[in-house]
Design a protein around this nucleic acid. Structure first.
Length: 757
DNA sequence: GGATTTGTTTCCACC
DNA sequence: AAACAAATCC
């Protein structure tokens, strides 16, 4: 029988198909499995696959799940509508675009586009760009949208307006209004609009509400703890008629409050649906006992959780490996050494390892070491593929062809590659477009005679818009691949790249090739189908045109990117992107105060708890071995920082830990302290480390006023040196020191632990 | 209009 | 430190 492979609770959760279900799934408890089998079970119970809507966290997860389900119950499962909130609702918005006064070829703006629009507004309003910082405004507007607050509601809200006045930013509501106006004029929606407008669609069109309520009789939502109000409200509306809604999640893994996720959606589910059945999946199948228990230690520090007892019978496994290093470089070295060692000793592959960190910038040092040791790796963060300049340029050409009203795209490529159309000409175009109340493209195409520009410039502009226009006419008749490669060709981006002698040109051309590959894969991919129940005819939900490609790719996250041929590589990613994944060996780097937990969260209990949940997510990614590390000094944002080790470490019971100290000077000191030997306190601070024997006698000078110019000093790492100059006083004293083998270094004396000769 | 230099910002996570 | 924006020069 289908569900035989499941445990009792999992089986119950799957079989309970009618009415509201809340499935609380502890880390590693087979959440995806339950979701997969539940959908398969629905189909086996003769539920029409078309009546199933499954909302997942990533597109990749949706793809994999669908594949599994097809394997379990056969081909008809391909009719299930499955994907992320953003991708599913963008498809529906595309179909119903006219109800909102949009064309179905609308563009989806990413946060860079949004910020650029915001910046232009601030400039046009003559406001201070420092005060009206584009990132701040973008966050504020996004927060409003994800709580379904329209510009008007914002304006009417005493509280929001008061907040803004207190922040001396009284014009935010006006900016928000103008921002929405400009987006609409550009025929664009931002990420939040996809959810906001879906709500508008269902609110204002009763026929559509009914249509989609009937279509989606069974709704399943994964990672429900990370839904925001806009998402919650769509689901609530869609499920209101048939009430067959299953939500799966873990309150302990809610890590997206910063972008508007509201943990009370999951905590209050039973209040919303008083007849909801609750299932708790508590058996962890992923990790060892030590990992599960240590993670439980940590998460138990948080208040306001749904009580659950995550356990495993996987055996104790090895202890959690915690290592302190002197520097970020040493930390990276330690991690790489362990990878090499485990791979050799335990016959595992590179793809079994993941290195997780709090912030993207931490990847750099680690990368350097991996490259040095020839360890293949893949970064799942940083500048994503679609964030690269050359790709964005080409995508802007595509966007403009698909949607000529997109002023952002227009401005990006009007003079790239250079066509001798400079700021002056563009400003004249902007004024013209404003007067004629049309897009820049349309102004250039239809009203160019009304502006004073040299004939040469006019010709340049006209050549450009006519080229775009010619492609634009074809956009619905030609498939994305065919049209795409011709646009790339005509844009002359490739020859333009080739002409400069930058060594990165090869990479860029490779990226463009990959984009072309993506176009091809898109055209060849299977259609998403809807079955017409009356005629039995299959109708494609969307076709393979360029506008669909552009919309789809703007919603891809880095983890969605398809595996390349050989993917036997160590994974590097932020903890956020690691959500939902698992690896045999997991490293969490940068376990330091002010980094993890981050500086900005330390003051607030709520945010600190979110950081802790993030750490919980990180720990529970590991199957066999979890390794944590911290560094005493770390290079960040152009300067050296010194932080104590993360408070989260002290929350782990010592019986689950093995500690070591990674010292560059003396490899033999890298010692392992077993749990019953003389344990070094986890809270050991820098002072205590100082008491370890020094290679050269004497203890470091602690009185910073004792240093004088010209003094001979000794540094642990740089060796012998002479003080050239001093600045500042007390704890802030800095010195320039000329070292024998390392040149001149600027040191903060409080941390440099200099010894006098 | 384009290239080069100089100054400034960002320092948390992302669909 | 690096990415980005503005200012300056040609």
């Amino acid at each position: 029988m289908l569900l035989d492979e499941l445990n009792r609770e999992q089986k119950l959760a799957c079989m309970n198909i009618d009415g509201p279900n809340l499935i609380i799934a502890g880390a590693g408890s087979g959440k995806t499995r339950v979701l997969t089998y539940k959908i398969a079970y629905l189909i086996q119970q003769n539920i029409n696959p078309q009546n199933i809507l499954a909302l997942t966290f990533t597109n990749k997860a949706a793809e994999e799940m669908k594949e599994r389900i097809i394997n379990l119950v056969g081909d008809k499962a391909k009719y299930i509508l499955m994907g992320t909130f953003h991708s599913i609702f963008s498809k529906i918005l595309r179909i119903e675009a006219d109800r909102l006064g949009y064309l179905s070829s609308f563009t989806i703006y990413d946060s860079d586009n949004s910020k650029s629009v915001i910046k232009a507004i601030v400039k046009d309003f003559n406001l201070d760009e420092k005060l009206y910082n584009k990132s701040y405004l973008s966050n504020r507007i996004s927060a409003a949208k994800s709580r379904l607050i329209s510009p008007q509601t914002y304006q009417d809200s005493e509280q929001l307006m008061l907040e803004d006045r207190m922040n001396s930013r009284p014009y935010i509501a006006k900016i928000y209004q103008e921002y929405n106006y400009r987006l609409k004029r550009n025929m664009a929606m931002d990420f939040d609009d996809l959810l906001f407008n879906m709500n508008v669609l269902l609110r204002d069109n009763n026929d559509l509400l009914l249509k989609y309520q009937e279509r989606f009789r069974y709704i399943l939502v994964d990672e429900y703890q990370d839904t925001n109000f806009a998402q919650y409200y769509i689901v609530k509306k869609l499920a209101a008629r048939h009430r067959n809604i299953s939500v799966v999640g873990d309150d302990a893994q809610s890590i997206y409050a910063f972008r508007g996720a509201d943990i009370s959606n999951i905590l209050d589910f039973q209040k919303d649906y008083s007849d909801a059945k609750l299932f708790k999946l508590e058996q962890n199948y992923r990790s060892t006992n030590n990992i599960v228990n240590a993670a439980n230690n940590v998460i138990s520090q948080n208040k306001g959780r749904i009580e659950k007892n995550v356990w495993t019978n996987n055996g104790d496994g090895r202890k959690i490996n915690f290592c302190r290093s002197d520097s970020d470089k040493e930390e990276a070295k330690w991690i790489c050494n362990i990878i090499k060692d485990r791979k050799r000793a335990e016959g595992v592959e590179y793809k079994d390892f993941a290195i997780l960190y709090r912030t993207n910038q931490q990847s750099r040092v680690i990368e350097e070491n991996l490259r040095f040791l020839n360890i293949p790796y893949r970064i799942y963060s940083g500048i994503s593929f679609y964030g690269r300049k050359e790709i964005k340029d080409i995508m802007a050409y595509f966007s403009l062809v698909v949607n000529p009203s997109d002023d952002e795209a227009f401005l990006r490529v009007i003079n790239y590659p250079a066509r001798s159309i400079g700021d002056t000409s563009i400003n004249k175009l902007k004024i013209l477009a404003n007067e004629e109340k049309v897009s820049l493209f349309s102004a250039a195409l239809n009203h160019l005679d009304k502006v004073s520009l040299t004939p040469k410039t006019k010709q340049s502009i006209l050549d450009f818009v006519l080229m775009i226009h010619a492609f634009s006419i074809e956009k619905d008749k030609t498939d994305a691949y065919d049209l795409g490669i011709r646009i790339i060709e005509k844009s002359f981006i490739i020859p333009n790249l080739k002409k400069d002698n930058d060594p990165s040109v090869e990479d860029k051309l490779g990226n463009i090739d990959e984009l072309i590959g993506a176009l091809q894969a898109f055209v060849e991919s299977e259609d998403e189908l809807i079955l017409d129940e009356l005629t039995g005819e299959e109708i494609a939900l969307s076709n393979k045109t360029l506008d669909v490609f552009v919309q789809q790719t703007s919603l891809l996250s880095e983890t969605d990117r398809g595996d390349k041929n050989d993917d036997n590589k160590v994974s590097l990613m932020t903890i956020h992107s690691a959500k939902g994944l698992e690896f045999s060996y997991v490293f969490v780097a940068g376990m330091e105060e002010n980094l993890f937990p981050g500086v900005l969260s330390i003051g607030s209990q709520v945010e600190l708890e979110e950081e802790r949940r993030l750490f919980y997510v990180a720990m529970t990614r590991a199957k066999t071995e979890l390794a944590l590390s911290c560094a005493q000094m770390r290079f960040r944002n152009g300067s050296m920082t010194f932080n104590e080790e993360s408070r989260f470490l002290s929350e782990i019971d010592k019986e689950y830990l093995v500690e070591s100290y990674n010292n560059h000077k003396d490899k033999t000191r890298q010692r392992t302290i077993s749990s019953n030997s003389d344990f070094v306190s986890i809270n050991r601070n820098l002072k205590k480390l100082d008491t370890l024997p020094n290679p050269i006698g004497g203890t470091p000078v602690t009185d910073m006023n004792a240093f004088r110019e010209g003094m001979e000093v000794f540094h642990d790492k740089f060796g012998r040196g002479k003080i050239l100059s001093l600045e500042g006083k007390g704890d802030d004293t800095k010195a320039e020191v000329q070292f024998d083998g390392f040149g001149i270094k600027k040191l903060v004396l409080r941390f440099a632990k200099l010894k006098l000769k």
